[in-house]
Nucleic acid binder design. Structure first.
Lengths: 369, 369
DNA sequence: GTGAGTTATGAATCTTGAA
DNA sequence: CTTCAAGATTCATAACTCA
């Protein structure tokens, strides 16, 4: 891993767990390259609203009309996107990744720009709002979702994905690309002195929770170049990730700072993701033989019992016409391109047929102690 | 409606309810401009698959590897998209609309191109697959959705949207932008002579059903430039829409033709949309007075009873400080920008409080006879 | 305190026809 | 073209009022 030292040095210069007040492009340009693990970006959507909208009860909809959401043209918006995404890519570590959230107004342009810059899209994830605002005039479908793009810095990168944690969050089923999460309302929604919402587009913490639990590790550096009300920082602190926020509006900076001060981090144990199987210590099949858990010469069988091979002292298997690893021989006998030998092969003890993976688990349990 | 005659003339030249075998760009170029009501496009996704993928049981995933899905670069894909979408826009009527379906590999580029060409996005709709293929490698979230873009030919267009039909399809609630529909499997999936699926990306009829019921009227012309297995034609025929398919592969053309021959159209009544309130004949408030359903001088009240006004012989209302239509006086008394007087005002008969809209309904019922 | 009823509100590209 | 006016249109949730 030739990158470790560089990253470690860079980390010294990082303004961790702080909000940088200023323009995100300039602020990112001042950060060292290859220093950040994950970026979460919630850029302006460029909504292009015309006129006012009233509900059927004649109350007025409080729309997004901030200056920061207005762009002169698609070209201007694209140029802005290219500029910030280029800097974002520069500060990402090689195995880093980015999340960008958007709606149909902007997300297609953002996605295409990310691809053009060399980002490699891993998933688009749909945030399905359980309580969206209806379409009051009945002219379209209720706009009930927003889209997140999850992309690696490049197609060569290997970004963090806590598969088992994601599965656990989804009650034991693989997590899908559509997430049902309510809007940010009630006590979670930051209010100004006048009691009105402080920020027009504050994101729910549940969304960031899912992003950070599934695609970062504790201690990872998470950068949010459009920090706004600071949801990314609040959730990162709670989950024991390091964070950097960039925000232009002093009012948002101040509110986010106070908000994050009030957040307490969970315990280290709670912050650690469900351990991934891949991250568990490797065990060589030969260790089972070395430790006497399997005898050289012992016969292993497939689950159905139709295929068999014999264990050799060096931890290889031998069958009628080949010799090799548990994986190779399993694949060979099935005429399959590959095979997980740990789950394919079984042995017999006291009349019961047991997968050899049970022995690997036993060794790992010992290693934990 | 100055466009009617032109469209009617053009329709004479249209190859309706037929499949054109050939390249979609050339074929669309041969169609008259402003002649089509709706386009449904399922272009190649440019999947960029590398190598083979196997399930945990070692069976091979039958991936999309057709030549028509391969492009040399994003630039080549964009040029292709621009070419077909430009022709598509030309053949659309001014109030026409387009649906395009895609996945994260291509949909961002397609959406941005549509916007660049002047299409006006109305919604992005998420097709949530109830039975997606899992992610076998456990490296990403299960890719459980595809995205459809619904766009008007321009921001000045007024595309068909059968709001009430959509609401009815969704059990009386506004239809949202996320649709749960299963993959096309089982008997619906066309099979080749070898029993294998005929087309790698055949779309479910339920998807087209929803698209056509909500955004076309019976008799509308629906064009599908990437006809494939002909789902658009099959559903259009069933729902009594006219259709045009364009497809390059002779095998698909032949299969789609046979498939559509076997489809029977539903009855005219079944094909008609839930009637919209906007489409009902206009009734002037004055007619209620003329017919003696309300007496000049009679008092009307708001539902809560707090506001009131008096009916005049000419069909206007008068309150303490203003005179005007039922809508104007309702808005005035509420200090609201507008008001639907038909539902706001109530009168009393035999002790019951009745909205004046009940009288309008009675008149409309008479007009039917 | 409790429950029923009322009001407020959320990233919104949100009308149509006649004159 | 523009202007004017008719009139069609909302779901989930939280907070508040009041009996």
């Amino acid at each position: 891993m030739p990158r470790k030292p560089a990253a470690a040095t860079a980390a010294l210069d990082l303004p961790l767990d702080r909000i940088i007040e200023g323009d995100c492009i300039a602020a990112m340009a001042a950060l060292p390259e290859a220093s950040v693990d994950l970026i979460f970006a919630d850029p302006p959507y460029n909504l292009q609203l015309k006129g006012e909208l009233h509900r059927p009860d004649n109350s007025q909809v409080d729309a997004v009309d901030a200056a920061w959401d207005r762009f002169a043209s698609f070209e201007a918006y694209d140029a802005f996107t290219r500029a910030w995404a280029t800097e974002a890519r520069r500060v990402l570590k090689p195995d880093g990744a980015i999340w960008v959230i958007g709606a149909y107004h902007n997300v297609f342009r953002v996605g295409a720009t990310l691809q053009d810059l060399g980002f490699w899209i891993l998933n688009d994830v749909v945030w399905r709002k359980s309580n969206p605002m209806p379409n009051f005039r009945g002219k379209r479908f209720t706009n009930a979702h927003e889209t997140l793009i999850w992309a690696a810095r490049s197609d060569a990168g290997r970004p963090v994905f806590n598969y088992d944690a994601a599965k656990a969050l989804n009650e034991g089923l693989q997590m899908r690309s559509d997430w049902v999460i309510p809007l940010c309302t009630g006590a979670e929604r930051l209010k100004g002195a006048d009691g009105a919402k402080l920020h027009p587009t504050q994101k729910p913490e549940a969304l960031l929770h899912r992003v950070l639990v599934t695609t970062t590790k504790p201690g990872d550096v998470v950068l949010d170049p459009f920090f706004g009300a600071g949801t990314t920082g609040a959730v990162a602190k709670r989950l024991r990730r390091r964070w950097i926020g960039i925000e232009r509006e002093p009012a948002y900076v101040e509110a986010a700072r106070r908000r994050i001060e009030g957040v307490r981090a969970v315990s280290e144990e709670a912050a650690s993701a469900t351990p991934s199987k891949r991250a568990e210590p490797r065990v060589a099949f030969g260790q089972l033989v070395e430790r006497g858990l399997l005898r050289p010469g012992e016969v292993l069988r497939s689950a159905c019992g139709r295929k068999q091979a014999r264990v050799r002292a060096d931890g290889t298997l031998v069958c009628a016409d080949a010799t090799g690893s548990i994986h190779q021989i399993g694949a060979h006998l099935q005429r399959a391109p590959s095979c997980n030998g740990w789950t394919y092969w079984h042995f017999e003890r006291d009349g019961a047929v047991v997968p050899i993976d049970a022995l690997r688990s036993a060794i790992r349990a010992e290693m934990q102690v």
